[in-house]
């Protein structure tokens, strides 16, 4: 029996505390936005979860490339962990975004580059799991998974660019302030505190989940080996 490492346990606790503080900052501490009102508070977690989704997406692509080069199944476990986390967090991002968009854009959904790209990324992830499900041989499963994440990592950014050739109504909050008419806004000091804290908190949460998921993947692989040993 392998017990959970102390450091991971500590990180679990830290993640929970950070999540609680971040929730407080977003819901209570940050001032209410003048035009949109309280619904704007969704923004802090919306961007933070999108950031985690991006981290997972990049991690999966890198793990895929490393797997193809090394053929070490360890990297396959890392890749699945990254894909799973990214899948869940992009989903949360989309749901939070819809909640915000309903009152502000007056619609749950538009075919804007970011929304569409996030949705397509989700579809690619689902396809990824369906592809893996159909393959028994672990090495082949890992190889195909890695090839598919690699192709996805190439396709998704270009999809974003391609849709961006057309008009977009998604506000760009950081960098430019010309998007006020589309629900953009300028952040005040307290908003910035809540925003950057949320980014930080979710990055820690990402590392925590990633670590836990990789550990779980390793344990599952070990169980699989033991089972094979018994059946022989």
């Amino acid at each position: 029996m392998q017990t959970k490492p102390k450091a991971l346990l500590a990180l679990d606790v830290v993640s929970l505390i950070l999540l609680a503080i971040s929730t407080y900052l977003a819901l209570v501490f940050a001032p209410t936005e003048a035009i949109m009102g309280d619904v704007q508070r969704v923004f802090y977690f919306h961007v933070a979860t999108a950031w985690v989704g991006m981290l997972g997406f990049v991690a999966a692509g890198v793990a895929g490339i490393v797997y193809l080069r090394t053929q070490n199944l360890k990297w396959d476990i890392i890749e699945i962990a990254a894909v799973e986390i990214s899948l869940v967090f992009f989903f949360i991002t989309i749901v939070l975004g819809s909640i915000w968009a309903r009152p502000v854009w007056n619609t749950w959904w538009t075919w804007d580059p970011r929304l569409t790209t996030a949705a397509i990324t989700e579809l690619i992830y689902i396809a990824y799991f369906m592809l893996r499900q159909g393959i028994e041989d672990p090495d082949r499963r890992a190889r195909f998974g890695a090839v598919y994440t690699l192709i996805g990592a190439v396709s998704v950014p270009i999809t974003f660019m391609a849709i961006r050739l057309f008009r977009t109504i998604h506000p760009v909050v950081i960098g430019t302030q010309s998007a006020a008419a589309q629900g953009g806004f300028a952040m005040t000091g307290d908003m910035k505190v809540a925003f950057f804290f949320a980014l930080f908190a979710f990055t820690v949460i990402f590392i925590d989940l990633f670590w836990n998921r990789i550990r779980m993947g390793n344990l599952a692989a070990k169980v699989e080996q033991l089972r094979l040993k018994i059946s022989q």
């Binding site: 397509i120 369906m130 028994e136 396709s155 391609a162």
Partner: peptide, 22 residues
Amino acid sequence: MAVQTRTRDILLPIILFPIIIP
């Protein structure tokens, strides 16, 4: 890749379409 899986021809459109969108 799809022909080497159990689900074969059902799988191809599912894995192909999201990639070819651009």
